[in-house]
Simulated assay, not measured.
Amino acid sequence: MVFGLLWIPATILASLLQTARNLAQRSLTDVIGVVGATQVRFLFGLPFALLFLALACLGLQRLPPEIGMASLGFTLWGALTQIAATALMLAAMRERSFAVTTAYTKTEPVQVALFGAALLGDALTPLKFLAIAIATAGVIVVSWKPGEKLTRAGLRPAVLGIVSGAFFALSAIGFRGGIQALPEGSFLIRASTILVLGLGLQTLLLVAYMLVADRQALILSLKSWRRSLSAGFLGAAASQFWFIGFSLTTAANVRTLALVEVPLAQIASRKLFAEGTSRREILGMAMIVGGVGLLLSLSLR
């Protein structure tokens, strides 16, 4: 029972670390571009993921489990969709505020719930779906401004953010599937193993692409190694806790609780970028908290 509830603090820690990582990546986007800032979390995160796995194996005195074709396939799926999701999110952040873009990407929980039920057989009761829907509706309230004209310029970042959320949903399902497909190991070792595999695949794919298509951005990311290393560590640490959550409960539960990142992004926006918070946004955040609270109450029964 204790380990069964560990997904709750793990998800909250992941959300805190991801908010910090997004801020670090946003600051790098103007320097090395969207693709360059996207690869930073993978290339500079991989050494930390290897360290996390080594510590887990030493602490538990166990070797990593053997990776079969099913686990590799799911993880590759998660790796590719996460690359697309991160690139789309950073592109949206160049056109809208940090907080609003984060809200757009957090339309993913309903999609995660449906994908998880259809592809992985994750349980989805009517009350849990209601909780997810309330929290997601809160995201829409936060992001939609009354009277705002839906121009082509305004539509672009919205579409980028929402599609980014869809790809994040698919990546969550892929990584949870990869963890579930491992034949053995504790939840910590299985989560750490898939994290290393996922970051390894992402690093290989993006570095190969950048060597051919955008070598200058890769060089700039290496020159900005201090900031890149910070983003890499935050990304790897956030992913470690996400994967711990995926190893213990459904991706829908994890991603719905992760909506606490929206209020966190609002706080960061206000403190760091002087972006205010309206009454409508406060109402939306209250809906998010209410939906998350309902989900937690159902999960604790």
Rank of each mutant, 00 (worst) to 15 (best):
A236M: 08
S221A: 15
E148M: 09
Y209S: 12
I140H: 05
L127W: 15
V163G: 02
G147N: 11
L127N: 11
A103K: 10
S230G: 15
W144G: 01
I179Q: 04
I140G: 01
Q216L: 12
F187V: 07
I173K: 01
I189T: 13
T203G: 09
R176Y: 01
L160E: 05
L127D: 15
V163L: 14
F167Q: 10
A166N: 13
P126Y: 03
V212N: 13
G198I: 00
P126T: 06
L188N: 00
V163Q: 02
A231S: 14
P126G: 07
L211S: 11
T136S: 13
A166I: 13
G138A: 05
T101N: 08
P146M: 08
L204I: 04
L127V: 15
M210L: 14
T107M: 13
T107F: 02
G198M: 13
L182A: 07
L220F: 06
L120C: 06
A118Q: 00
L130F: 14
L199W: 13
A123V: 12
T203N: 11
V159K: 06
G235M: 07
L195A: 11
W225L: 04
S186C: 07
T193N: 07
Q180W: 01
A231P: 07
F233D: 01
Q202V: 02
S224F: 12
G178S: 10
E108P: 03
L170N: 09
L182M: 08
A172C: 04
A137D: 07
L150M: 13
I173A: 02
I134G: 13
L206V: 04
A237D: 10
G121E: 05
G185K: 11
F175K: 01
R227C: 00
A113P: 00
A113I: 00
G178F: 11
Q180H: 09
L199M: 15
S224P: 00
E108M: 13
A231Q: 05
A117C: 01
G235H: 10
